[in-house]
Simulated scan of single mutants.
Amino acid sequence: MRALLVVNPTATTTGARTRDVLIHALASDLKLDVVTTEYRGHARDAARRAAEGGEIALVVALGGDGTVNEVVNGLLHNGPSLEALPRLAVVPGGSTNVFARALGLPNDAVEATGALLNALHEGSERTVGLGRVSGTPGTEDEGVPSRWFTFCAGFGFDAGVVGRVEQQRQRGKRSTHALYMRQVARQFLGERNRRHGSITLSKPADGTVETIDELVLAIVCNTSPWTFLGNRPVYATPEASFDTALDVLALTKLSPLPAARHGSQLLRSTAERGPKGKHVVSLHDLTEFTLQSQAPLPFQVDGDHLGLRVSATFTGVRRALRVIV
């Protein structure tokens, strides 16, 4: 089998020696081409060439969730086509690796490589659904290019946290869970004067459009868990699954007491129980909906901060891609 390995050399948890060992292990079983990324978007470009060339049967992403997202967007540049597109495989090398862990893969790169080779020998794969977000017609974001995401997107508070973390990483800080928690606190304090709900969620319902107004944040999940704190999974929308469309967790209030209560619920969440309460909006298996804000808000997909947006239209696409597991 001819395969392309896309390597992020700055991945948080894999050094050069580990990457060399993994490449050697994969090359022993595969006819392997290797691309080491050199710029933002390089993984996407390499995966797109693999998808359009017709000779690559498997694309392996070695890196974190950002690398995986780029590879997925390259594979799906011309849309889903299960029979025509290469399969995807993931070797986790980032700090959190939500997509890989949600698939049930080991969080250690060496163990994950062994699991990948076993899956290839056994012909083990699954088809996963993905999310897609695009600019909303009739808004200033109408022309924004569409973007696929594998596990989550965020509009408002959590995207602001992601943006703060990226700023700290650009200043040389390591991506740690302590860094994330500090930025959560700073984002909360920074939004003290902006906690009145400005987001509206609109979705089709029985031939009409149902709206939910005055949301202060919205988290869109394609799978569960939403993220990890160390080895602890955090479930924003426990019912979310790669086999369904998209789930949403939204809040209508972010003042100190509700924020503390829902933060505690997230930390204590399980695969059966997520945040609940009168300020919580939880929606399951949405195929299409739009989030629109009265003012520009931070926006992120798969942990990649995309700046400020006033709107975003989401589509849940079932059976979008084949993944080796």
Rank of each mutant, 00 (worst) to 15 (best):
I324H: 00
F188M: 12
R268E: 09
A260P: 07
R44I: 08
H279Y: 04
G123C: 14
L58K: 04
E55N: 11
G114P: 00
L217W: 01
P256S: 08
A47C: 08
D108I: 07
E214L: 10
T315I: 05
R232K: 10
H262D: 14
N78M: 14
S124L: 06
I212Q: 05
F242C: 03
A57T: 01
V301L: 13
G172N: 01
M181D: 14
I199A: 03
A240S: 10
H284N: 09
A25G: 11
E191N: 09
P106N: 13
T211G: 06
V98W: 02
F151K: 00
V60Y: 06
P80W: 13
K276D: 15
R40H: 05
V209G: 03
E55G: 11
L85F: 08
R232M: 11
T211W: 01
R101P: 14
V323D: 00
D158G: 06
A51H: 06
L297Q: 08
V7K: 11
H284Q: 12
G63K: 01
A11K: 07
V6T: 08
V209F: 04
Q300P: 12
G303W: 01
T150H: 09
L266K: 09
A115W: 01
A102D: 14
R40C: 02
R49H: 11
S224Q: 04
D65K: 12
A25I: 07
G190W: 00
L88N: 03
S311Y: 00
V323M: 03
L286E: 13
